[in-house]
């Protein structure tokens, strides 16, 4: 029998105080930088992309990496939010940016609740295909809709149009809120259930995890934040048409980010998003090749680093950032204090 002496843990957790403080300092630093205009426009353009992709990647990771719902149709909510913002801020309705963004996210939440009625009857591959088809269906709808300019799309006309600085701050706020929410969620009992679902959904059900309610919660949260990020993305871009809103390329980028970074870890999509944005920027010079190169990288990572970059690093070096790990010795301390 194994008589190895009990080691406190096989994993060092880096999040508690020092790591969290570092993150907060970094975030505050970026905020100040944005507000004071210390960051160049070029850098800000990168930052906006990174923040938005982190948010989307993190949400996709929550969906697929934790709750076992490999959705290929999150662009449904990106497109909906983009069009909502475009329509609501048009001279006809004249909503301010904030209102329009929230409206877009609200519509997405309502649609996601409705979609869950249909989608949650399906599992695995069937679920994935159904999400993709749903997104395509919405794409067709907007293609045919005269009011939104059919295939030509809409130009977003917000009055006054937000500056790049404002967009950067907004996207950063959403990113920080999304990260904090994911991290917080994983440390609650719901998070415990989600982590269990990540490892084995059948076992999770057998120990009393309510799979349906967990899935629903995650699906709605993901729709909300994906929509917010999508809305801002199109404000930044200035126009939207059906293919850019509901295109499959959104899914490709989310999958890429989550897989490169490491699914089932909180820190993975952050690294993934940073890599993705820079790669994307470099590959913009070779339009036809970009997807081939991204695809090749994804396959190589799946083959050689199946846990993604962060997942592999964490395993090799025995640490975890933003961990939701529970330790029995923490319990003991609590007992002694009593």
């Amino acid at each position: 029998m194994l008589k190895r002496k009990f080691t406190p843990s096989h994993v060092k957790v880096l999040d508690s105080p020092p790591m969290l403080i570092l993150c907060i300092v970094l975030a505050v630093g970026l905020y100040i930088g944005c507000f004071a205009g210390l960051i160049s426009n070029k850098a800000m353009r990168y930052l906006v992309q990174i923040f938005l992709y982190i948010t989307m990647g993190e949400m996709w990771n929550l969906l697929s990496g934790y709750a076992g719902m490999t959705s290929l149709g999150q662009q449904l909510y990106i497109g909906l939010a983009g069009y909502s913002v475009a329509m609501a801020t048009s001279p006809l309705f004249g909503l301010p940016l904030f209102g329009a963004l929230l409206l877009g996210a609200g519509i997405s939440v309502v649609v996601s609740l409705f979609m869950s009625l249909i989608l949650f009857r399906l599992e695995g591959m069937y679920f994935s295909i159904a999400t993709l088809v749903a997104a395509e269906a919405f794409c067709m709808l907007f293609f045919a809709w005269k009011f939104v300019g059919q295939g030509a799309g809409m130009t977003i006309r917000i009055n006054p149009y937000p500056t790049l600085q404002e967009i950067c701050i907004l996207s950063m706020t959403i990113c920080v809120v999304a990260l904090a929410l994911v991290y917080g969620l994983l440390r609650t009992r719901v998070g415990l259930g989600l982590t269990a679902m990540r490892d084995d959904i059948t076992s999770a059900a057998s120990v009393g995890v309510n799979i349906f309610s967990h899935k629903l919660l995650v699906y709605v949260i993901a729709a909300f934040f994906t929509a917010l990020a999508g809305g801002i993305f199109f404000v930044n871009k200035g126009m939207i048409y059906p293919d850019s809103g509901f295109g499959i390329s959104w899914t490709i980028s989310m999958v890429f980010i989550a897989i490169i970074g490491g699914t089932g870890t909180v820190s993975g999509p952050i690294i993934g998003a940073i890599i993705y944005v820079f790669l994307n920027e470099k590959l913009a010079d070779y339009p036809g090749w970009s997807n081939i190169i991204l695809g090749t990288i994804t396959i190589l990572v799946i083959l050689f680093l199946p846990n993604g970059i962060m997942g592999t690093l964490q395993k090799k070096l025995h640490f975890e950032i933003f961990s939701s790990k529970r330790f029995s010795f923490k319990l003991k301390k609590a007992a002694k204090e009593k």
Binding site: S9, H10, L192, G193, T195, A196, R198, D199, D200, T202, S203, A204, V207, V209, G264, K325, R326, F327, S328
Partner: peptide, 14 residues
């Protein structure tokens, strides 16, 4: 069918 990426304690905790 344990939750393989979690500790023994976490398995039972869930």
């Amino acid at each position: 069918r344990p939750f393989e990426h979690m500790s023994v304690y976490e398995n039972v905790l869930i």
